[in-house]
Design a binder for these strands. Sequence first.
DNA 1: GTCTATACGAAGATAGAC
DNA 2: GTCTATCTTCGTATAGAC
Lengths: 183, 183
Amino acid sequence: MIEGAVRLLATEGVEGTSFANVLAATDSPRGSVYHHFPGGKAELVREALDFACEAAMATMEAARGKPARAVVQQFLDLWRELLIDSDLRAGCVVMAVTVAAGDESLRKYAGDIFRRWTEQLIGLFAEAGVDRRSARQLATTLISAMEGAVALSRAEQSSEPFEDVCAALLRLADTLSKRTRPK
Amino acid sequence: MIEGAVRLLATEGVEGTSFANVLAATDSPRGSVYHHFPGGKAELVREALDFACEAAMATMEAARGKPARAVVQQFLDLWRELLIDSDLRAGCVVMAVTVAAGDESLRKYAGDIFRRWTEQLIGLFAEAGVDRRSARQLATTLISAMEGAVALSRAEQSSEPFEDVCAALLRLADTLSKRTRPK
DNA sequence: GTCTATACGAAGATAGAC
DNA sequence: GTCTATCTTCGTATAGAC
């Protein structure tokens, strides 16, 4: 059911992720919704955010210890997969919540996930020898640009914007990671 | 009323932009909503998108004829203004619709606006002497990264992500615009 | 845990008087 | 053009039986 919520949030947004839709998409039992999610819809959305957050971070862990360019490549692939596997229909769950949450606390929750992603990337770049300042800029820019690129490609129903951004980001990564950390 | 819809879309998303909310926010007459917007909510959203689209493009026209770096700076300032003037509460209307539109046609409508923004930026960079390929990459990346950066700063309630991305984009612009168009 | 039934409110939309 | 009234649908949430 949480996975179903993730899928719906990514493709239909918060509005489209009603209990009715999630249940219909997952053949879940109707009667026990508030047994499993006493906090109601907000809780379901939080759990979906956690799930998506962990999945992304687990994937990125595979790039630990590799050079900066490989870390970037892994990150781009992560988003390309989301986009291509969904036929350009899915976006980022965290973005969906950020932009559409009626609840202020949900937006903060999304913000915390962005922070965690950023810190993880900074760590990966730091291990690859990139100086702290460049690592932070690179991490934040990667996340921002991917979030935007996925949205553009989704709206335009074309992978071209996404691929253009990927190309530019690889170039940026080369520029920024030349500034290696002084030892 | 259209301006009110723009404000609500930017801060509350599509879900929060109900007729009731727009009316309350703008002291508009209740009775004539469907007189002015026979297409219902979808039409209101389309008009709001048009309004926001034109406003942004008009601002960017001021940078026509200037060097690439000035074009970039103008674009960054455009988004910084949105973010700061709203106390980190507003996002991009087009992003809001892309991510939350129940209607498929609205998403396409948003895509057209992204296209128009991209084409305008490509034109500005081309006039500044940047080669076509770099101009396209730079334009798409600028839009994507700003869309994402605004969302991150909004979610995290901090202007730091936004400013980090701005710094990185200026660096990228310098790299890409060195490739000048052969004459 | 899962069910049915139901309360409650919000939102989109329409009709018809003024 | 603007009003009021109303309809319908939907979504969240609760209550209580099994």
